[in-house]
Design a protein around this nucleic acid. Structure first.
Lengths: 134, 134
DNA sequence: CGGGATCCGGCTTGATACTG
DNA sequence: CAGTATCAAGCCGGATCCCG
């Protein structure tokens, strides 16, 4: 489980490298950091959640995109899906242990950005101003 | 600069919240975690870099997308662009202090994923196997 | 070398409708 | 509630040409 080696897509004795075009880690990174992936994972860090509640936490996501995002994350072992065959149906989504680790690193980034948006906004004004109003 | 407040898009007295549909932090997060954004920021963490060298580090990115990505990151104050009006022209890109902080958090996520891809790959096999070959 | 401008095909996305 | 199916639109991204 430590220092795994990419046995098929990144070369014989080479560890996974996201900068390599064909490395599967790039795919997973995209699932996790994708438009809805990062928000979904971040929202689930607050605890298990049902489908429609998740939709409310992640403002703006459509049913289709949330469903699609959750499937990709479940396949990658980031999210666990628990369905109870009751009526009405009840399905809970939660992070796996792997997902929790991912979420914490993602949230560190998110919170840092949230905490420094004033700097970003200032930079934007400077940038937009410098290039003559364009 | 500490505990900034979103004065226009997230409500009067409320800090920036990436889960809110209209919060500008969501936009910046997408620039940073976007398909090429994360790899570009990660690659620049190794040090300043010229355009075409960056293209080589980030395998698979087109000129157009790299250019576009760099502009967005520069506007957000993540990347600094230094052009020397020589001939042939020489342009160096580097992370700003803000960008370095962002990159470190991003790389923490990337390295964690790279180091746990075997678990992801196993999860995928299980997932694909369970749902009867579909 | 370091890009900008343009064209264009296709995948992604978002409504909408429907199912269990 | 928890999704899937369908479809049109639009944006993404690559290829190409051009410029400084």
């Amino acid at each position: 489980m430590e220092t795994p080696v990419c046995t098929d897509a990144c070369g014989p004795e080479q560890p996974f490298d996201v900068f390599a075009r064909t490395c599967p880690s790039r795919e997973t990174l995209e699932h996790v950091t994708g438009r809805w992936g990062s928000l979904t994972v971040g929202a689930l860090r607050e605890g298990p959640c049902r489908f429609n509640e998740l939709r409310r936490r992640v403002e703006g996501v459509s049913e289709k995109m949330l469903s699609q995002t959750l499937h990709a994350l479940e396949r990658d072992g980031i999210v666990n899906r628990e369905a109870q065959p009751t009526n009405p149906p009840r399905v809970d989504y939660e992070l796996t242990p792997l997902g929790i680790e991912v979420a914490d690193r993602l949230l560190a980034l998110i919170h840092y950005l949230e905490g420094n948006m004033s700097a970003v906004l200032t930079a934007r004004e400077t940038y937009d101003g410098t290039r003559g109003g364009r």
